[in-house]
Design a protein around this nucleic acid. Structure first.
Lengths: 106, 106
DNA sequence: TTCCTATTTGGTAATATAGCCAAGTTCTCA
DNA sequence: TGAGAACTTGGCTATATTACCAAATAGGAA
């Protein structure tokens, strides 16, 4: 693999890695609908606020979400709505796998 | 997060995690075009064959690729072509990020 | 100021991942 | 059979990730 190709796939992997966690996928899913503050997201996730904050910072570093401070709250939102299609992709991948397993059992 | 929601996002995360590595993204990209044997993939990647084999087994466990033994070679192929759209998603996410950074510099 | 809420950051321990080498398996072909 | 090619698996070390707690920072209200 030449250096340029390697760099391209490393860049892609950075994005995908940022999404590779159940909580972070959930956060992206919620933020797709509206902006939400860390406080509320923490409540929805049900983990320590520091944990949720770190997940959000990982998504932010990858350019997937954006944050905006208002008062003493920080609101996050999806900065890259196109990534929503990714859910459909993954979802249909899951279905394909499930159907294959079903076929084996039948 | 209720158990059902948690399970749904955990399932999605399993798929995304399987893709969250430069080498594995490269493998999927190559396999999208045609089936290829481990031997050839190893040559393309430029790592130890055991390393490539393990990456392939991770993709296989996630239901992303399928393998077929023919003679003493094992051919892998994409079992879920829909995942190719995912590349476009990630690619446009990269572009969005890049454009924002460019705007900051200007 | 002082307290309180919202959030981030640092530290730490447990767990997961990655890559190589070595050993085992399977198949082909002499 | 035996040698060798193609893969996979086990083992090991190095590195990365995760989640929590505790401490630090920032803003709003009394």
């Amino acid at each position: 693999m030449d250096p340029k190709t390697q760099a391209r796939f490393a860049a892609r992997a950075r994005i995908v890695k940022a999404l590779a966690h159940p909580t972070r996928l959930f956060l992206v899913d919620q933020l797709a609908r509206r902006e939400i503050c860390v406080c509320k997201l923490t409540e929805m996730v049900g983990a320590d606020i520091s944990t949720v904050s770190k997940h959000l910072s990982i998504l932010k570093a990858a350019g997937i979400v954006a944050d905006e401070k208002r008062g003493n709250q920080v609101f996050y939102s999806l900065s890259c709505p196109c990534l929503l299609d990714l859910f459909d992709c993954v979802e249909s991948a899951l279905k394909t796998t499930a159907q294959k397993q079903l076929a084996l059992v039948k």
